[in-house]
Design a binder for these strands. Structure first.
Lengths: 237, 237
DNA sequence: GTGCATATTATTGTATGCAATATAACGGCG
DNA sequence: CGCCGTTATATTGCATACAATAATATGCAC
């Protein structure tokens, strides 16, 4: 029993309505890699963990499926997504396509306060890289993604922001699956370079740096077709 | 009773699984403007129309909410989305940001057969513009959107394709709400121009044309803040 | 007749129950 | 011993039932 991962996430939080809370908790767990790709997420288990009925658990899983973080197979259930190399390529292609434009919009609208906030985020990120331990790694992953998300937020376009949230989350899955270097996430210095370029309103180089940054992350992936590609989601751990 | 729109869509189709079928049918109804923005979509009514329980109806509505075509307000129910002028701007900003890149990818991969297909789509579109009647208008709206979607499909990036589907669908809502010109959709000739540029592998002008095309659509919108902005979804018709 | 408090109705939120499907366990047979 | 068909178990798909909330109607005071 309990073949599903007994994820160690905080199932408590009085605020917010059921489904969303569950969805957020599971998403965090996936993005922070406490839930491995392919892990089965049974409705009963999820419901049990959060003390809700299968109805809500199911709704949360469905929502995560829309975000591409979970695959639901008919009559078989929900699994943490296991992006194929091709999907991985498309995710990063999407980021290359979208992030320069977002950065450009952000550059046009950014305020001094926001620039400062970005700097603080960077500092935090740097601090975490120095620390050891699981939780520091997780926080680092999150901070690294948050950099890109904050830029999207600054751009002021909620639609692009949501799309980026999806892309960043799925990127985390891809890196977990295909990343080679020990560096848990993207190069910290590159983030800094982008910000300094942004600070001097040098949009073009900022965009260039962003593109290279994404390419660097991608270069660290080993996207060769694995032997058993998708073989029942790698035996659905 | 039956305050919800009695939409005249075919509620029958043996193939495909419940939720998805409902979702697609309602989405089509929204995109083709048979369902006006703000229309209430009660779970019972939707379920009744498709002869399924509220469970499935609810799931379909939730899915549409994720696509931005429906707003669900807690304890109040689901309504056909009523994008604010600001949302409208963001939707088109997103399209300006994304479509040139998609077009570029498409240009790199397009085959002769696909180019021909695009031409046929254009012909069909032209034919529909000549015709009169509601159903021709609807088909025209769809064809016009399909042009952009086919480009996304040719680009080979499923993620961008899905994103474009969302944007095109929401654009239809925006045009329904804020469009001024009688032309139900975008300029037909501009589509043609883009394709000819694509035909001679002239990516740069194709992208330029696409940008202008989007700007033209946007220029036809009257995005001044309406008097009762969001006043309970315009009295939730 | 208007305004407000109350009661009634309708609709949504959530849990539970049953049928259908898939997975796993079992046992005979080659 | 391995293979295959059967049975048993677990899990999902869907519908229904009940509780909670919002919308509406009613009645009373003024």
């Amino acid at each position: 029993m309990n073949s599903s991962a007994d994820m160690l996430l905080t199932p408590s939080d009085p605020t917010d309505t059921g489904t969303q809370q569950i969805r957020d908790a599971i998403r965090d767990a996936i993005v922070e890699r406490r839930l491995a790709p392919g892990t089965k997420l049974s409705e009963s288990d999820v419901g049990g963990l959060f003390n809700v009925s299968r109805t809500l658990a199911r709704a949360a899983l469905q929502a995560l499926a829309y975000e591409g973080l979970v695959n639901v197979e008919r009559n078989r259930g929900a699994f943490v997504a296991y992006p194929s190399p091709e999907e991985a390529r498309q995710i990063f292609a999407a980021r290359r396509l979208v992030e320069p434009g977002i950065l450009k919009s952000a550059a046009e609208r950014i305020t001094a306060a926001q620039l400062k906030q970005l700097g603080q985020l960077l500092l935090e990120e740097g601090r975490l890289i120095g620390e050891r331990g699981q939780s520091a790694r997780r926080a680092e992953i999150k901070a690294s993604g948050d950099f890109h998300l904050m830029l999207a937020s600054i751009s002021g376009n909620l639609i692009m922001q949501r799309f980026m949230e999806e892309l960043v989350a799925r990127s985390s899955l891809v890196i977990a699956l295909y990343g080679q270097s020990s560096a848990s996430s993207c190069g910290h210095s590159e983030h800094a370079d982008i910000i300094t370029a942004l600070g001097r309103k040098d949009v073009d180089t900022a965009c260039d740096l962003m593109l290279h940054h994404i390419e660097h992350i991608e270069a660290d992936l080993d996207l060769r077709e694995r032997k058993s590609f998708d073989l029942r989601e790698a035996f659905e751990r």
